[in-house]
Design a protein around this nucleic acid. Sequence first.
DNA 1: AAAATACGTCAATAGTGCTGACGTATTTTT
DNA 2: AAAAATACGTCAGCACTATTGACGTATTTT
Lengths: 173, 173
Amino acid sequence: MNDRNGKPVRTAITAEDGIDLAIIELFFFAYRDFTSDPDEILADYGFGRAHHRVLHFVNRMPGLNVAELLDVLKITKQSLSRVLKQLIDTGHVLQIQGPRDRRQRELYPTAKGRSLALALARPQSRRIHDALQATDAAERGAIEMFLKAMVNSESLAQIDKLPGNLPGGDHGD
Amino acid sequence: MNDRNGKPVRTAITAEDGIDLAIIELFFFAYRDFTSDPDEILADYGFGRAHHRVLHFVNRMPGLNVAELLDVLKITKQSLSRVLKQLIDTGHVLQIQGPRDRRQRELYPTAKGRSLALALARPQSRRIHDALQATDAAERGAIEMFLKAMVNSESLAQIDKLPGNLPGGDHGD
DNA sequence: AAAATACGTCAATAGTGCTGACGTATTTTT
DNA sequence: AAAAATACGTCAGCACTATTGACGTATTTT
């Protein structure tokens, strides 16, 4: 049964195969390690990565409603509900009835939720800062441009809605 | 119960908080969209991201044994076992008894496994290529250096073992 | 008054990961 | 040769995130 499906391929995939392996692999390792910092903190609260994402965007767009949050995260409301419920029950997030449309629930962080969001962002920011220590402004621009160009246009629309992000800050093209 | 835990914070976290929000958020969206390309292909096979990772590294380091694979992926053997079993049962990966140490199982892709690995890497490589279209060599170097600097030193050791990656290719510092 | 919308929730399922425990084949150490 | 360590596989149970489908309620729009 070991070789029923043909012989083993003994050569490695390499750059000759026309694949940008270097960046594919760097991206994988970099993102894994990038998320490991907040993961450790979250574990103390019994939270996971989903809580982090919700908390982050509630802090970045206070007052957004549930539909808007689902749109940013691109998950279903059933997935969101448990995570959001836990964040509300633990006093990190508040729901306030929409002033114009009372069907809506506006989401806000509490002071506690703000504090946790910053604690989660801090090690990530430090990692970025350290990684950029010998980087000049032009290089940083190239890095941001690259990351932005890796994003789908739908996601890009979400990014441009975040405060402090100059819409159309795309220097390329 | 809505405001038992204090008042809503109505201001957004911004760069003033000393956090590099731009890159944190770009990294999140970029990685999510980067993985969405292979995810669609994997769904046709009933596979998930874990299968992708195993298949990728088996193709990049043919003949590696189970312990080495666990070391690269940083998961437990129990987590690996289901995923690896499925890849073997579907004829994408072969296990061959280690020649020197017969306790070991060397992992190789089949032609089918190689083909799928390339099919999964291709859209990611194209996305990278497109993102870099207006990028010169120096900028590309800065991007690779940044990604590499984002990685933990333990992970870096793994990267340097991959074929085609000049060990110590770190230009920084 | 009827239809659409925003949201919450119940139920079932899938994929990935974990810890702990145990068994077997094989190699290394004593 | 016997004992210990190693490499691997597997069983069992659990947690987190995400999915689809269905249904209910309050509210707004038509």
